[in-house]
Design a binder for these strands. Structure first.
Lengths: 200, 200
DNA sequence: ACCCTACCGGAGCGGCTGCTCCGTTTCGGT
DNA sequence: ACCGAAACGGAGCAGCCGCTCCGGTAGGGT
């Protein structure tokens, strides 16, 4: 008992790792398409895997969704970081617009982010979602404060919350509609006054 | 066949009307507490009524929720109209704040409103929700335009959408947090520049 | 006081969901 | 080639859901 290694040896079998990856991909795809309430059978079917396989790799459906979301949020944070230009305000507004576009294509994405809001019941499982994107938002806010374009009384938490709010409507209305609301919100965040709206 | 009256005679039995009211109250209460996905058994239990009674009065669960929501939205619109002062901007911002407070107490309320957004699938059933509050928002927007405090490029649809977005986060964060976001949004809607935030 | 009728209640049906169990297959070290 | 451990698949279980069905009950006109 005392001699067993802390972590099991490297994947003893190749198909195990492959199937684990397929499950994560399938789960991520289905979450994106239909939100967080997916049928486990459908995940298994899309991954071309049996139910037993699914529940060997992940103790519960929640754990699988959680692992899949971690991948999604990590890649989001990576892509968002890569597209920074160093100009504070354009970076911030583009980050928000891109996040909402992403949310339009994957209605269930910010759904998960919302579940990680502080004070939510059972939030521990989804905390990593915020941990992926949270620091990035904090940095964007800090830079925008420094450049003087973001009103100083706005916190990263405010921006995060605003993103979640807009993310809840972005998938259910036509794109020009949510872009207008985003524009208004950005005007509210700016130190200067209002600017002309896009769209009709 | 041709001789049957267009509407059946007045409620032939007293308990029928009473139970109908109880069902509507129970449904409204449960929707408010837990959102739109309620167990019909629980509605019947709270109304102290059997399943058969429920499905005699309403052809489907959806129809019951729909009827209950109509009551809720009507009373909301009535209360909101009653608290108007005639000063355009305070009326508009108070309407929004009151709506969000209401939403905080009843997380499922704007959930239903959201389902009536134009372009949503199967939206016909919930259209009356918008029809209750929609004209009120339109009037508030018109008055605020006239007084010159609301930027002229904002439509009633914009305000309605903003309300839905904020309503989605109001129940899941502490009150000061969503009040800050509302304040920022109102600043974005105003023709003048930003004003100090409430809360910490 | 009577009876017909409309209304009441809740057991039960079919379908869906998360999860388990176990006989079978396959990997990979020897 | 061989073999044991590990992974595979999917039928099946328990519980939940919206909804129906039908024997019993009670309202209200006469």
């Amino acid at each position: 008992m005392t001699s067993l290694p802390a972590a099991a040896a490297r994947a003893a079998r190749s198909d195990a790792a492959r199937n684990r990856g397929r499950l994560l991909d399938a789960a991520a795809g289905l979450i994106a398409e239909r939100g967080s309430d997916v049928d486990v059978r459908e995940i298994a079917r899309r991954a071309e895997v049996g139910m037993g396989t699914l529940y060997r790799h992940f103790p519960t459906k929640e754990a699988l969704l959680d692992a899949a979301l971690e991948h999604v949020f990590t890649s989001w944070a990576t892509a968002a970081t890569a597209s920074l230009t160093g100009r504070a305000w354009p970076d911030l507004s583009r980050f928000l617009a891109d996040a909402l576009t992403r949310q339009t294509a994957s209605p269930g994405l910010l759904d998960a982010y919302c579940q990680a809001l502080p004070g939510q019941a059972g939030n521990t499982a989804r905390q990593h979602c915020r941990q992926q994107v949270g620091p990035l938002i904090a940095e964007l806010v800090r830079a925008a404060h420094e450049s003087g374009e973001l009103r100083p009384d706005i916190t990263a938490e405010d921006v995060s919350l605003l993103l979640v709010a807009l993310g809840r409507i972005a998938p259910v209305v036509p794109e020009p509609a949510w872009r207008r609301i985003l524009h208004v919100s950005l005007d509210g965040l700016r130190t200067t006054a209002a600017t002309p709206l896009p769209g009709a």
